[in-house]
C-alpha cells in the first residue's frame, strides 16, 4: 500500500504548524495585561505559590526564555492547574473529551444522513419543485445560528413534546445517547445546509459526466448509475469540504455545548474565560487546534482511501 506511505512523513510536516500553535497560545496568554503569575494562579494565590510558578515558568526572565520554559513544561505533560477546579488541566480535559467527541462525530454522521438523501433528490429532480424547495431551504440554512436552533429544538422536543432532556449528559451510555440527540441534531442541521449545496452541485456535475454516460450506454438503470457511479464520485469533494469545515464545526460545538450544558471541552473553554482560569483557556485552545490538525490528517487518509487517484 505505497499510496499510504504519506502516513509516515506527513506528521513531520505538521511539526511547524504545531510549533506555530504553541507560539500563538503562548503569546495570547502573555498579552493579558497584569502580573502573569497572578493571572495564572488567580487573585487569592499565596506568595509562596506565586514564587513557585514564577520559577516553574521563568516569569522573571525574558520572553524567549519564558517560551522555552513553556515548551519544556509542555513536553513533560505539564500544562498547569485550574484555579477553579483545583486539579491539573490535563486531568480536567481528560474528563471533558468524551462529550465533545460524541457531539462532533455524531453530528457529522447525522448531517451526512440528512445531506446525502436531500442532495440526491435535488440533483435527480433538477429544476423541478423538489429541487427548488431543497435549494431554497439549504441556502436559508446557511444562516442558521446553531445556538438559536438548539433553543428552538429544546422548546419543540423537550418543553412541548417532552421527548428529550433539556440539558446535561447522563451516567449510562443509554442516558448519554438520549442526551446527545438534540445537540447532535442542532449541529447536524446547521452543517447539512453547506453539505447539501455542495453535494448537489457535485452530483449534478457527475450525472452529466462522460463516465455516467458510458455507464448508461452499458444499459445500467439510472438508479444503479446514480448509486454506483455518481454517488461515490461526488463524495470525494464532500470529504474535503468536511475537513475544511472541521474548525467551524468545533467552534459550533463550543456554543452548542453551552446551550445544552454539555460538560465538554467547549463548555470548559467558555467557563474558563469567565472565571479567568487562563491555564484552562490556554490548554483547551491548544487542544482544539491540535485536534483540528489531526482531523485534517485523518481526512487526507480518508480521501486516499476513497479516491484511488490521490497521492499525497
Amino acid at each position: 500500500m505505497h499510496r499510504f506511505r504519506f502516513v509516515l512523513w506527513r506528521p513531520l510536516q505538521l511539526l511547524p504548524v504545531l510549533f506555530g500553535i504553541s507560539v500563538i497560545t503562548f503569546v495570547l496568554i502573555r498579552m493579558i495585561p497584569g502580573d502573569p503569575a497572578r493571572l495564572l494562579l488567580g487573585a487569592r494565590a499565596t506568595p509562596s505559590a506565586l514564587a513557585r510558578i514564577r520559577e516553574q515558568y521563568g516569569l522573571d526572565e525574558p520572553l524567549w526564555a519564558q517560551y522555552a520554559y513553556f515548551l519544556s513544561n509542555l513536553s513533560q505533560g505539564e500544562m498547569g492547574r485550574s484555579i477553579v477546579y483545583k486539579i491539573g488541566v490535563l486531568d480536567l480535559m481528560a474528563n471533558r473529551i468524551l462529550p465533545t467527541v460524541c457531539l462532533v462525530v455524531g453530528s457529522v454522521l447525522l448531517s451526512l444522513l440528512i445531506a446525502i438523501p436531500l442532495a440526491s433528490i435535488a440533483a435527480r429532480q433538477r429544476g423541478r419543485t423538489a429541487d427548488h424547495a431543497i435549494r431554497i431551504v439549504s441556502t436559508a440554512g446557511l444562516g442558521l445560528p446553531a445556538f438559536w436552533l438548539g433553543i428552538m429544538l429544546i422548546i419543540l422536543f423537550s418543553v412541548k413534546l417532552g421527548l428529550f432532556p433539556v440539558a446535561g449528559w447522563g451516567d449510562t451510555w443509554l442516558e448519554r445517547l438520549h442526551h446527545m440527540v438534540l445537540p447532535c441534531l442542532t449541529v447536524a442541521l446547521a452543517l447539512s445546509a453547506v453539505l447539501t449545496r455542495n453535494l448537489r452541485a457535485a452530483m449534478i456535475a457527475e450525472i452529466g459526466s462522460d463516465q455516467a454516460m458510458a455507464a448508461r450506454s452499458r444499459g445500467l438503470p439510472e438508479s444503479v448509475v446514480f448509486r454506483r457511479h455518481v454517488l461515490p464520485n461526488s463524495l470525494v469533494p464532500t470529504v474535503n469540504l468536511l475537513a475544511v469545515n472541521i474548525g467551524w464545526l468545533i467552534g459550533g460545538s463550543v456554543v452548542v455545548e453551552t446551550v445544552f450544558s454539555l460538560p465538554g471541552m467547549g463548555q470548559l473553554l467558555v467557563r474558563g474565560i469567565f472565571a479567568r482560569d487562563y491555564m484552562v483557556v490556554q490548554a483547551v485552545a491548544m487542544a482544539f487546534a491540535v485536534a483540528t490538525v489531526l482531523i485534517n490528517f485523518l481526512a487526507d487518509l480518508l480521501t486516499v482511501a476513497i479516491d484511488p487517484r490521490v497521492r499525497l
Binding site: 504548524v17 474548525g247 467551524w248 459550533g252 463550543v254 456554543v255 483547551v284 485552545a285 490538525v293
Partner: peptide, 17 residues
C-alpha cells in the same frame, strides 16, 4: 506558514480566546 497556523485553530475558539 502563518496562514496554516491560524487556520489550524477552530475559528470561533481563536476568536473567543
Amino acid at each position: 506558514r502563518v496562514i496554516d497556523v491560524v487556520l489550524a485553530f477552530p475559528f470561533l475558539v481563536l476568536m473567543i480566546a
